[in-house]
Amino acid sequence: MKKVSIIIATYNAVKTLHVALNSVQNQNFLDWECIIVDGASKDGTIEVVKYFSEKDSRYRWVSEPDGGVYDAFNKGWRMAKGEWVYYLGADDELLPNTFKSIFEKQIEDCDVIYGNYLTNSQGKVEIIKSHSNPSFLRKNNTSHQAVIMRRKVIEDLKGFDERYNLCADYDILVRAYLKPYIFKYVDIDFAIFTIGGISSKSLGTESWNIRRRNKTVNLFVNTWVLLKRLLVHCLHNE
């Protein structure tokens, strides 16, 4: 079993994919596999994938029509052989020390690890720090480019909810937080996230629907969840 499965969903990503795959190749942590889940691209994406997979057997791939990015994400974790699963965008870039730095931390009993990420908007790069005290019940506290999750957790939660087009990655974090699985913040920069054209209004609407469906807009429910998490963490740290 590999330590980490890095999953990349692609569709007509020939212009950017080589950067993402090179950033995987340049990791100074070697115990990984990279799974590319392609949605039947019509440009040269598959030629790029074949180039990397022929050089290194740790790259695996599939190309077939899919129902969008979260359908591809679900295919990815089902194909994964790693203990941990990480999702990288086809136009994003892993930083070279990411996994080495994570696994040097005391994370043996943790289920979800999250940290910081950098945003790239038209060449302007900014570091986004996640909060060390998570507020997932009230808002999306981080980005999937700065989260690594045990595969068994994703399996237990039955993967991503494909009813959401934009924020299913937030939804799975909320559901993991409600369980409650053990979350840990690490002050590590994971990746450079290239910002696309999705409006903040659309993201806000879907995030609200996620909180409503998971009943985290209720103050009593939130208080009960936080108390339960406090008890779990106290037992965990004994």
Rank of each mutant, 00 (worst) to 15 (best):
L94Q: 00
A72Y: 05
A168S: 11
D156T: 11
I195R: 08
P180D: 11
Y177R: 01
C34E: 02
S132V: 08
Y59R: 02
K124V: 12
K179F: 13
E64P: 09
A80M: 02
D187V: 04
L219G: 10
D66Q: 11
Y114H: 04
E238W: 11
W84A: 00
L203F: 14
V186H: 06
K129V: 05
D31I: 04
R211P: 00
T98V: 12
R229E: 04
F73M: 13
W77L: 03
E83S: 10
S207H: 10
F99Q: 05
M149N: 09
D161R: 02
I8Y: 07
P134D: 13
F220E: 05
Y181L: 06
K215M: 12
R213Q: 14
I102L: 13
W224N: 13
L88M: 10
G197Y: 05
V19Y: 07
I210C: 04
L203P: 06
D38F: 08
L166R: 10
I172Y: 01
N28K: 14
N74I: 03
G68E: 05
L118C: 13
D38R: 07
L157Y: 09
S121L: 15
S121R: 14
W208H: 15
V24T: 02
I195F: 10
K158P: 03
T142K: 01
C34M: 08
Q106Y: 11
K139E: 13
W84V: 01
L17N: 01
R60P: 00
W224M: 14
N222T: 14
E33M: 10
D71T: 08
N141P: 11
S207N: 15
G44K: 07
I198P: 01
